[in-house]
């Protein structure tokens, strides 16, 4: 006995969604329009590929002369110093800022002021901040450190405030009930709850500062970025490749170290 169902009673499991199709069409049209505005064309891309081949040819093999390696080591050490100092000072300043910005511990006017300050610090790209600091304190590592301190304050301050807002108030109330002052409440009630996450933020920020310290040198903020930009402007592309490889290796090494450190604090 076989039953044949009329076709239309079979429900289509995946009906066509016209809104999504229209959105996709719009996306394709936008890509074509924007590519036209930016003068991105296939011909240019093909010419570029040819040029890219020559470029890679001049990059390989990486330059391993002792003199260049010495320059790169100096630049990388300076980048490391910039990253460490920017993280240390940025985090120290971000601690009170984040604490004030947490809405569950401080009065509304204080937290809104701190939040506005954090938003302001986060608006500009570190490179733009670096340009302004180069004008203010001159060329060199200090401008880079100051620019990254601003970036670290904004980022860690925001995350720290969010972490504090998520804590359980029960422990805070318990400490308050013993008659503890504000500082004791912070140290005994708040800090233990956010310490592990805070260490995570600091490690992340150090990682991020290390990456960014390779960039502030391009606008005069010191570090490996300055070495890289000089090599680039002198068309020493093989030195550029060596520097890029060193940066990638150091950042990968740091990733291994940071997972170790996170494990210690878990």
């Amino acid at each position: 006995m076989s039953v044949t169902l009329p076709r239309r009673t079979l429900r289509d499991a995946f009906p066509a969604n016209w809104t999504v199709r229209a959105l996709r069409l719009g996306l394709v049209l936008y890509v074509i329009y924007a590519a036209g505005i930016l003068q991105i064309s296939w011909a240019r891309f093909v010419i570029g590929l040819d040029q890219g081949g020559k470029f890679l040819g001049r990059m390989w093999p990486p330059n391993m002369q002792a003199q260049k390696l010495q320059l790169i080591t100096d630049g990388m050490l300076e980048s490391l110093q910039i990253a460490i100092l920017a993280t240390a000072f940025g985090v120290l300043l971000a601690l009170p800022l984040g604490l004030i910005a947490a809405r569950n511990l401080t009065p509304a006017w204080a937290s809104w002021t701190a939040r506005a300050l954090i938003a302001l610090l986060r608006t500009f790209h570190p490179v733009i901040v670096a340009i302004l600091f180069v004008k203010a304190v001159g060329f060199g590592a200090l401008a880079g450190v100051l620019a990254l301190v601003v970036a670290s304050m904004g980022f860690v301050g925001k995350l720290f405030a969010e972490a504090i807002e998520e804590i359980s108030m029960k422990q805070v109330e318990a400490i308050r009930a013993t008659g503890a002052g504000f500082l004791s409440v912070l140290i005994m009630g708040v800090l233990p709850q956010v310490m592990a996450r805070f260490v995570g933020f600091v490690i992340y920020q150090l990682d991020s500062n290390l990456r960014n310290s390779t960039m502030v040198g391009i606008v005069g903020g010191g570090g490996i970025g300055a070495t890289l930009f000089t090599a680039y402007q002198r068309f020493d592309y093989d030195v550029v490749l060596t520097i890029l490889l060193v940066i990638i290796v150091i950042i990968m090494l740091f990733e291994v170290v940071s997972t170790r450190i996170r494990r210690v604090f878990q």
Partner: peptide, 28 residues
């Protein structure tokens, strides 16, 4: 993924400017 993240956008831009010449194509 790690290589893409370790090289900063400005440094990526330097490389693509050397290949495609100055302009928004290199930036994109």
């Amino acid at each position: 993924l790690v290589s893409s993240r370790s090289v900063n956008s400005l440094i990526w831009a330097l490389l693509f400017v050397a290949i495609f010449g100055p302009g928004a194509l290199a930036g994109t």
